[in-house]
């Protein structure tokens, strides 16, 4: 098994607020890892440290054997290799659906407009948004925006996809359409790191589940183990709380 991402002794604080403490974990190629945990436990910060939207305070992040915190390392090239899907979608408001999926390809990957549009169309079709290619973000529903956001990330042909609670800002009736797309992606063999509160999704799709609590990884294991037979008390408590909602 080849590790794509390895996180070693990662720590992060905002001022006096220690948010991540000595995080160690790795993601291998083709693996789907779900990160669960109560809000404020540091899940988003962990994802954001991995793609350097936040600068870690200590430890190492290793991508395909290279230390990306090394000063010499090109942050921008590295980020192109990681697709990120945000809770708040963050589609580029000045571009239509197609433009959202092509701007990075054309400006960063230097693909021709034609090629970029062909790639974009492939993914927009995959997420079922081919009828809305010329729609601006404000003309789309939350679920549609999130599907375009997924297509935008995929259009860069990333090695890894990071999802930060992609369905948490959606109306309940739209959660399904986004999870369906994510499930298809997982089945296609894409490497995915998903922060989610959708326990059903995690149980069904994840190869591994990581439970975070108060800035540390409290427990990790297979979905069966975490959901049916957690060894830690706090995991059990968290699951009881979230499943009773």
């Amino acid at each position: 098994m080849v590790n794509i991402i390895e996180v070693e002794h990662l720590s992060k604080s905002f001022g006096d607020n220690v948010v991540l403490k000595d995080i160690n974990f790795s993601v291998t190629k083709g693996e789907v890892v779900c990160i669960i945990g109560s809000s404020g436990s540091g899940k988003s910060t962990l994802l954001r440290c991995i793609n350097l939207l936040e600068k870690p305070c200590g430890g190492r992040v290793i991508y395909k054997g290279e230390d990306i915190l090394n000063e010499q390392h090109d942050v921008y090239k590295y980020r192109q290799k990681l697709g990120m899907v945000f809770q708040q979608f963050n589609l580029f408001n000045n571009h239509d659906a197609l433009g959202n999926c092509t701007v990075g390809q054309v400006k960063l990957l230097k693909r021709s407009r034609q090629e970029a549009e062909a790639v974009a169309m492939e993914y927009l079709r995959m997420v079922g948004m081919e009828q809305f290619i010329h729609a601006k973000p404000k003309q789309l529903s939350g679920g549609q925006k999130q599907r375009v956001a997924i297509a935008r990330a995929l259009s860069m042909n990333p090695d890894v996809m990071l999802f930060d609670e992609p369905t948490s800002a959606l109306d309940p009736e739209m959660v399904g359409e986004v999870l369906k797309v994510m499930k298809e992606l997982a089945e296609s063999g894409l490497t995915m790191l998903v922060v989610t509160h959708e326990m059903g999704f995690a149980e069904e799709v994840a190869d591994r589940v990581v439970f975070m609590d108060d800035g540390v990884i409290a427990e990790e294991g297979s979905p069966q183990q975490i959901f049916n037979n957690p060894s830690e008390g706090r995991t059990r408590e968290f699951l009881k709380r979230i499943l009773n909602q």
């Binding site: 793609n51 939207l53 921008y76 090239k77 590295y78 980020r79 192109q80 990681l82 990120m84 945000f86 708040q88 979608f89 963050n90 589609l91 580029f92 408001n93 990075g104 400006k107 960063l108 956001a149 935008r152 990330a153 860069m156």
Partner: peptide, 12 residues
Amino acid sequence: GQFEAAHAIGMN
């Protein structure tokens, strides 16, 4: 979020 998405995609 617009800055973040642009940075996340690899823009300087």
